[in-house]
Amino acid sequence: MNLLSILLQAAGGANQWSGILMMVVVVAIFYFFMIRPQQKKQKEIQKSREALKKGDKVITAGGIYGKIKEISDNYMSIEIAEGVNIRVDKTSIFASAEDAQQK
C-alpha cells in the first residue's frame, strides 16, 4: 500500500464522523430554539391554569369570555351571560381575561 491510499482511507473515516457530528448539532439547535421554549411556555400556561379560582374572568381557546363559577378536577363551569353557564375542559382555558388584555 502506498501513502496516498492510506491517506484517502483516513479521510473517508473523518467524513463519517463529521456527518454524525453535524446531525448532533442540528438536533441540539432544534432543541434549544424550538422544543425547549415551547416546553417553558406550556409550563407557564399550566401554572396560570392552576392559579385560577372561582370568580376569575377567563377566555377559552375558542374565544369565549366568561367568569368561573365552579372548578372541578377535569372541567370548569363558566358563566358567559347572566344565568347561562357552560362546562369546558380545564385544558381549553387559554388565559385569564386580565392577562389577555395586557398582551
Rank of each mutant, 00 (worst) to 15 (best):
Met1Leu: 07
Met1Asn: 11
Asn2Thr: 15
Asn2Leu: 08
Leu3Gly: 00
Leu3Asn: 06
Leu4Pro: 00
Leu4Trp: 03
Leu4His: 06
Ser5Pro: 00
Ser5Asn: 09
Ile6Cys: 08
Leu7Met: 01
Leu8Ala: 12
Leu8Met: 12
Gln9Leu: 15
Gln9Asp: 14
Ala11Val: 08
Gly12Thr: 08
Gly12Glu: 01
Gly13Trp: 10
Asn15Arg: 10
Asn15Trp: 10
Gln16Glu: 13
Gln16Tyr: 09
Trp17Phe: 11
Gly19Val: 04
Ile20Met: 07
Leu21Met: 04
Met22Ala: 13
Met22His: 13
Met23Glu: 13
Met23Tyr: 04
Met23Pro: 00
Val24Tyr: 15
Val25Trp: 01
Val25Gln: 14
Val25Phe: 04
Val26Gln: 11
Val26Trp: 03
Val27His: 02
Val27Met: 14
Ile29Gly: 00
Phe30Leu: 14
Phe30His: 10
Tyr31Asn: 08
Tyr31Val: 00
Phe32Ser: 04
Phe32Glu: 13
Phe33Thr: 09
Met34Asn: 14
Arg36Asn: 12
Arg36Gly: 01
Pro37His: 09
Pro37Thr: 08
Gln38Tyr: 08
Gln38Cys: 07
Gln38His: 11
Gln39Phe: 12
Lys40Ser: 04
Lys41Met: 06
Lys41Pro: 00
Gln42Lys: 14
Gln42Ser: 06
Lys43Asp: 14
Lys43Asn: 10
Glu44Tyr: 11
Glu44Cys: 05
Glu44Gly: 12
Glu44Ser: 10
Glu44Gln: 14
Ile45Gln: 10
Ile45Ala: 11
Ile45Thr: 04
Ile45Tyr: 10
Gln46Cys: 03
Ser48Ala: 10
Arg49Pro: 00
Glu50Gly: 10
Ala51Trp: 08
Leu52Ala: 01
Leu52His: 12
Leu52Lys: 07
Lys53Tyr: 05
Gly55Tyr: 02
Gly55Met: 03
Gly55Leu: 08
Asp56Tyr: 01
Asp56Arg: 03
Asp56Lys: 02
Asp56Asn: 05
Lys57Cys: 08
Val58Cys: 06
Ile59Ala: 11
Ile59Gly: 03
Ile59Ser: 05
Ile59Thr: 15
Ala61Thr: 12
Ala61Gly: 05
Ala61Phe: 05
Gly62Glu: 15
Gly62Trp: 01
Gly63Arg: 01
Gly63His: 07
Ile64Phe: 13
Ile64Ser: 09
Ile64Asn: 03
Tyr65Cys: 10
Gly66Asn: 11
Gly66Met: 06
Ile68Thr: 04
Ile68Asp: 00
Glu70Thr: 02
Ser72Ile: 02
Ser72Met: 07
Asp73Pro: 06
Asn74Phe: 04
Asn74Lys: 09
Asn74Gly: 02
Asn74Ile: 15
Tyr75Ile: 04
Tyr75Asp: 11
Met76Gln: 07
Met76Pro: 02
Ser77Lys: 13
Ser77His: 15
Ser77Gln: 01
Ser77Tyr: 01
Ser77Gly: 10
Ile78Ala: 00
Ala81Trp: 05
Ala81Gly: 13
Glu82Val: 04
Val84Cys: 03
Asn85Glu: 15
Asn85Pro: 09
Ile86Lys: 11
Arg87Cys: 15
Arg87Ala: 06
Val88Tyr: 06
Lys90Thr: 09
Ser92Glu: 09
Ile93Lys: 02
Phe94Lys: 13
Phe94Trp: 03
Ala95Lys: 10
Ala95Glu: 09
Ser96Leu: 12
Ser96Pro: 03
Glu98Asn: 11
Glu98Ser: 15
Asp99Leu: 00
Asp99Thr: 02
Gln101Asp: 13
Gln101Trp: 08
Gln102Gly: 13
